[in-house]
Computed example of a mutant assay.
Amino acid sequence: MPSPQPADDDRRFKEEERQKKRAPWGVMALVLLTGLALIRNGSGEFDVGPPQPASAAAADHTPEARPGAPAPLAFSPADRIRIKGIQVDAPIVPVGLDPEGWVDAPPPEDPNLAGWFTGAVAPGEKGTAVVVGHVDNQQGPAVFYGLGSLEKGNRVEVRREDRKSAVFEIYGIEVFSKENFPGSRVYGNSGAPELRVITCGGGYSEQTGYDGNVVVFARLVEVR
């Protein structure tokens, strides 16, 4: 059996390092419960606020798996997100934790930019991937301004660096208060490839900003 090539060793080392750096669920849940629920750069300074989810769009607590769902994909970083229902077509940048220990968001200066949280799985891997983005900035609506208007059955496509696209079908859209953010429900591992897309939502005040987050729940239904 031939010896591994240097490139193989390098790839294996990088994968091992990536696994080491991935936040354990217990730590991640605590951080996300307090941090990601606070995507803090939305301005809220516009006469008409972003759309909020209808009560009928609430996610099932135990969604049924779709027959014929594709197998989980191997790891590959997220590259771009497309949501046809709200005309989103945006590049994705990796985000981690900011200096204060919060889950970071993409730079607010670019309104058409989303962030993939690298402490969770990659979109399409087994587990729950997380993509975040701003609802607005000082200039106007941003990438996920229309997130709350999505409906069950709409699809979210995430293109990955391996040139595969993971297609997720939405099974719920809800807005959660920062004070009572259900971290385990939002970020928990269902045993299948899932996706959460998150932005600011709820009410707004100049003192505290947005008081909640809009969360899209989706499951993998196709790989292109």
Rank of each mutant, 00 (worst) to 15 (best):
P108A: 04
P108N: 13
P108G: 15
P108L: 11
P108R: 03
E109Y: 15
E109V: 11
D110H: 15
D110Q: 07
P111W: 13
P111V: 10
L113Y: 05
L113P: 08
A114Y: 00
G115W: 02
G115P: 03
G115A: 04
W116I: 15
W116K: 09
T118K: 00
T118D: 05
T118V: 13
A120F: 00
A120W: 01
V121M: 06
A122F: 01
P123F: 00
P123K: 00
P123T: 01
G124A: 04
E125F: 04
K126M: 10
G127L: 04
G127T: 12
G127S: 07
T128N: 10
A129G: 09
A129L: 02
A129R: 00
V130C: 13
V130G: 12
V131C: 10
V131K: 03
V132H: 00
V132T: 14
V132D: 00
V132L: 15
V132Q: 11
G133S: 12
G133T: 05
V135M: 08
V135Q: 02
V135P: 08
V135E: 02
D136Y: 05
D136W: 01
N137Q: 08
N137E: 05
Q138L: 07
Q139F: 06
G140M: 11
P141K: 02
A142G: 01
V143L: 11
V143Q: 07
F144M: 02
Y145A: 06
G146F: 11
G146A: 08
G146W: 15
L147G: 03
G148E: 03
G148M: 13
S149D: 11
S149W: 09
L150H: 08
L150W: 02
L150N: 06
E151T: 14
E151S: 10
K152E: 09
N154R: 12
R155S: 06
V156L: 02
E157H: 00
E157Q: 13
R159I: 09
R159F: 00
E161F: 06
D162I: 09
D162K: 12
R163E: 15
K164C: 13
K164T: 14
K164E: 12
K164Q: 10
S165A: 15
S165Q: 15
A166P: 09
A166R: 02
A166T: 04
A166K: 01
V167E: 13
F168H: 03
E169Q: 08
E169N: 05
E169D: 03
I170R: 09
G172F: 08
G172S: 12
G172D: 14
G172R: 15
G172P: 12
I173Y: 13
I173S: 15
V175G: 03
F176N: 06
S177M: 07
S177N: 13
K178M: 08
N180T: 11
N180G: 08
N180D: 03
F181M: 00
F181G: 07
P182K: 08
P182N: 14
P182Y: 00
P182A: 09
G183P: 05
S184M: 14
